[in-house]
Simulated scan of single mutants.
Amino acid sequence: MNFKRNFAVLGSAAAMMLALSACGGGAGSAGGDSQTLRLALNQTETHPSYIALDNLGTNVEESTGGRVSVEVYANETLGAQQEAIQLVSDGTIDMAVVSGTQLENLNPDFQVFNLPGVFDSVEHQMGVIGDDAVVGELYTSLEDQNLTVLGGFTQGTRSIYNTAGPVNTPEDLAGKKVRVQESDVQMTMIELMGGAPTPMAFGEVYTALQSGVIDGAENNEISYLTQKHNEVAKYFSNTNHLVGLDYVVINTAAFEAMTEEDRAAFEEQWAAAVEEHTTLWLDETEKAHADLEASGTEFNDVDAEAFDAALEPLIEEFIDTEVEQTIYDAARAAAE
């Protein structure tokens, strides 16, 4: 199945445009000389991404004397990620947090950072994605679609969880329907891990697990806990197959509408938000693990060599251009 496609005009996105227009939405909503940036997020208010971005809004408003502010809309209020990124491109909203899988559907070069084995740790990942020499051209490659990538937030290490029992080897996933994001890389990844990939919006996962539409999913411990997936899928197997990545994108026209002074202040506060998020992430992952154990989640280690061997073909299959090879080599060199 190929998810590399242009934007489609979705009915739900169109409805969201009307709703936002009715309440004064739109890229860089202005009141006098002020600019309010509306940001779409699919996580809850307890998630590190919300906390860091909410603080970003406060700090940007203070540092610009109220000329620029950021309003964070959590819980997919402004739509799922596929809808949100279209709304940012259209200029109906200004910013969104989107998984790396969403951007690989717009520019395949982004898929390099979505591959297992590219990053060894969160610290390695954040060093690479903040290095302008590696990501500068990549982050501006979507400006013809009115999207600028500000940078990234870690998703931490991702693993498999399911409703049936511990997963030890890829054979244990045989016949299991595993939720994935809409991405060629993710679909192939789950197939190689032994499961049956089932693309689905993040907000639908809890009900799908509860009803048996899917058997499992893959994610980090924080999202597993904050979305309460542990209530309906208590087996968490430490496959640690991927260090995941979110991006924060902004409508290019809204970004360029800031004065030079305000943009500099915004970028300074964005850099601070990335640091805050990374620190929060590492701390909250430890707390989430403890809370999950206390709530009855059953953790187990896996045959890591078996999963590594199963996933090895992904690199050769999906790195097939000189640009992608250059990005991959730079990322791996940073680990040495």
Rank of each mutant, 00 (worst) to 15 (best):
G165F: 04
V135P: 02
E143W: 09
L147H: 06
Q145K: 15
Y139W: 03
D144L: 00
G151E: 01
V167E: 09
G130N: 14
G130R: 14
G156M: 08
A164C: 12
S141N: 10
A164H: 15
E143N: 14
H124E: 12
R158E: 15
T157K: 14
E123K: 07
T163D: 13
S141E: 01
L150P: 07
D144T: 04
H124D: 15
D144F: 04
D132K: 11
D132Q: 13
V167T: 11
S141P: 11
V128R: 11
G152N: 07
R158I: 13
G165P: 02
G152W: 07
S159M: 03
N146Y: 05
M126G: 00
G152Y: 08
G165R: 09
L150A: 10
T140S: 15
R158N: 15
E137M: 04
H124F: 10
N168D: 12
G156W: 06
Y161N: 03
V134W: 01
D132I: 02
E123D: 15
G127S: 10
T169K: 13
E143M: 11
T157C: 13
D132Y: 05
F153L: 12
D131K: 07
E137D: 15
T169A: 06
T157G: 15
S159G: 04
Q145H: 08
E143R: 15
L147M: 09
D132N: 13
G130K: 13
G136D: 09
M126P: 04
V167M: 10
F153R: 05
P170M: 01
Q145M: 12
